[in-house]
């Protein structure tokens, strides 16, 4: 792969906080130009630590980060100018107005004033009406929008969204994904962290799963779903069963508490199990009225992976 295709290259990045806690353990990760990358992991996994190290907020002692082939510490002026960050916590200078705080962000990143551009951003986030309001008077959702506007104010090529939808209403979530798609169309690379799995499933091109400071896996979302996705086959029985017949014990199968349903879980790529099971059922004279299949969500994949890691 040519270097320019990877806009971020992370090599052996580790973090020991001052209290000795190891929050990241030798993370290697390449982010491709223009993709939406979801970093998925439970609370405390190290997502924010990783982002903050890339952005220059947390010191790096071990490993290195390159942005557009430039070292993120030695060439910090160039690399940081490329990055916009929407932090996890709602933080802002509360007494400032929306417009002045967004202008401040633009200036901080070395850009000259550009009122039409800032207006465009504020409008796209439904903030234009509120431009003269102080941050203090805004609701939580509106504050989040302001943080997004601040991150976009200097026209970054890479955007980090650290748990962008934590505590956010449906409307803002929709607006936000609209903005994210728009950014992607404009060629901006987007990295978001979340522990809402549906979110990653909905929007990401690739997914990285992180747990206890270790990057467990990085995959194309579709491949991940395909490879690790499980399907559930639900068989509605005409006559309830008292217990699971011994012959079915070999299958990964459960009997519902009321005895009316059998639920068989199988890997997506395994396509022989279902017919074997159905043959077996008819040879056992177990009649069924209906069958139904359901795919497992990324959530289940995730829990599964984390558990596997722990074993």
């Amino acid at each position: 792969m040519t270097p320019s295709e990877n806009i971020i290259q992370i090599k052996n990045l580790s973090k020991n906080y001052q209290d000795g806690f190891r929050a990241l353990n030798s993370v290697n990760l390449d982010i491709r130009k223009g993709e939406i990358f979801a970093l998925l992991g439970p609370n405390g996994a190290g997502k924010t630590t990783l982002i903050n190290m890339i952005c220059g907020i947390v010191n790096i002692q071990e490993g290195e980060v390159k942005i557009s082939d430039l070292h993120n510490i030695k060439d910090y002026r160039k690399t940081r100018a490329l990055i916009g960050l929407v932090p996890q916590e709602l933080t802002s200078e509360t007494f400032e107005t929306v417009l002045s705080t967004v202008n401040f962000s633009r200036g901080l990143f070395g850009k000259k004033d550009n009122p039409p551009f800032v207006e465009k951003i504020l409008r796209s986030l439904s903030l234009w009406d509120k431009k003269d309001n102080t941050i203090l008077t805004l609701s939580g959702g509106m504050k989040r929008r302001v943080l997004i506007a601040k991150a976009l104010a200097h026209e970054p090529k890479i955007i980090f969204l650290d748990e962008p939808t934590a505590g956010v209403d449906v409307e803002l979530r929709q607006d936000m994904w609209e903005v994210v798609r728009q950014l992607k169309d404009d060629g901006v690379t987007i990295i978001l962290t979340t522990h809402y799995i549906e979110e990653a499933e909905q929007i990401a091109d690739r997914i990285g799963i992180i747990n206890q400071g270790e990057l467990i896996l990085v995959k194309e979302k579709d491949d991940l779903m395909l490879e690790l996705g499980k399907k559930h086959l639900q068989i509605n029985l005409t006559e309830p069963l008292k217990q699971l017949p011994l012959e079915l014990m070999d299958f990964q199968i459960e009997l519902s508490p009321n005895g009316k349903q059998l639920i068989y879980t199988y890997e997506k790529i395994d396509n022989t199990g279902v017919s074997l099971l159905l043959e077996l059922l008819s040879s056992l004279q177990i009649k069924y009225s209906d069958i139904d299949t359901k795919e497992s969500s990324l959530e289940e994949i995730f829990v599964d992976l984390v558990n596997r890691e722990r074993l």
């Binding site: 907020i57 910090y76 960050l85 932090p87 916590e89 933080t91 200078e93 070395g110």
Partner: peptide
Amino acid sequence: YFPKFSGSIYEVLSAPIS
């Protein structure tokens, strides 16, 4: 102190500024 306290210091620390 105030940006440190409120957390908004993140922006200054992540900006291309010496």
